[in-house]
Design a protein around this nucleic acid. Structure first.
Lengths: 218, 218
DNA sequence: AAATATTTTTAGATTAATCTAAAAATGGTA
DNA sequence: TACCATTTTTAGATTAATCTAAAAATATTT
């Protein structure tokens, strides 16, 4: 049985190794978890000892098969809780993270089984991320750039392809956060610019360049 | 902000001091929490330092006003979660305790506010115990143990003082659910056992130990 | 390849929460 | 009151999780 801290490390390392495809460095983990490299070294030794990670000094870590399974169960719980908070308790998408971060560590297989049932076996969480099933199986949602969408198509912002500070500042300004609901209101064939509505409120015009960099899913 | 362990001590001490009316002894706390007296001494020093308990060496502890408030908020969360588990997730009442014991420590005022709303502001949990409101106010139902009842007295099961899974399973078996109507048919002075009728149907014999743990109200 | 910079690990501390064993205080009774 | 049993506290360890500072290994750059 993993502790809260162990589960948090495992989850972070799993996400990092999915992103990079390669083994994960001590510093990368320390940065994500807001902790120090020395603490990470201690923890990855412990998790290696439990067979959850494989690790060689100075060479970074990889998630083992049993680690992958355990990580997916934590992710499953996290995303089910987020779904519950948004769908049943009317949380906004930006209010759920910290609470789900706590709830994901609750140990009760029955609770998760019943919650899944209660929510109608959702396949995706409010951010459009897939919810692994009890065996760890999941399928990512097909994503599409806003530039490729028809008028009236709506979806949730799930990815941003440009991460320059300028672009992120611009997204911040128009409110097109990850998880925001976006609807295409109009499309200008001439230059590919678009009129979109964000979170059922603000209406903004975005250039083709911007619309190619914001990706949405249902 | 209190840790999980601190909240568990506080809750146990609050319950003990409600029962006895008096200050609570180190040994009593150790027994309830399945820990050692030395550990209790350490913890009550810590909680005294935080102003949650008042404590003099060798004299036992009392819960301060701020401690009482904090304890009632933990109890509020526990009972709201139990209500949620039974009403929404179809848990049996013998399955809720361990999970609620974990969930009660989740820190999120918004979560509790929304959960309360979602459940329709319940005043009593599935065991008949009152749920304190956000200010710690609550009102107990006047209750009496079946063991104290005269022959022919009848009432509704409103509370169960032992919440071990074994006991709750037994109650399930004889049909003595919360809300069940119970009537005392006969009393054996010799050993305190009783013959009772449940929901105007089944007639069962219960031991003194059982009759002391089932409480009814009119 | 040597020097320098960066990353990672080790060594040694700290805090929370627990324990065992021993010492101290309290309370009841002969 | 003095003794004895019980309760409570202290002293000293242990484990998990963290830190800082220094040492060791790896990577980069001249």
């Amino acid at each position: 049985m993993l502790s809260f801290a162990e589960e948090n490390y495992l989850k972070a390392i799993y996400h990092l190794s999915e992103q990079s495809g390669d083994s994960v460095s001590t510093n990368a983990i320390a940065e994500i978890l807001n902790t120090k490299a020395a603490s990470v070294t201690d923890m990855i030794k412990r998790l290696s000892g439990k067979g959850i990670l494989s690790y060689q000094k100075y060479k970074g870590v990889n998630v083992s098969e049993s680690g992958r399974k355990a990580a997916l169960q934590v992710i499953r719980k996290h995303r089910l809780w987020e779904t519950f908070l948004v769908e049943k308790l009317k949380f906004n998408w930006d209010e759920v993270h910290d609470v789900a971060e706590q709830l994901e560590h609750i140990k009760s297989p029955l609770l998760i089984k019943r919650m899944d049932e209660f929510l109608g076996y959702p396949k995706y969480d409010p951010h459009g991320d897939p919810i692994p099933d009890e065996h760890g199986e999941f399928k990512a949602k097909p994503q599409v750039a806003i530039s490729e969408c028809e008028v009236n198509r709506s979806g949730i912002v799930v990815s941003v392809k440009d991460d320059s500070p300028e672009f992120l500042r611009y997204l911040d300004k128009i409110g097109a956060y990850l998880g925001a609901k976006v609807k295409v209101l109009d499309k200008v064939d001439f230059d590919g610019s678009m009129e979109i509505q964000i979170d059922n409120k603000k209406i903004v015009f975005i250039s083709r360049e911007v619309s190619e960099n914001i990706w949405i899913a249902d």
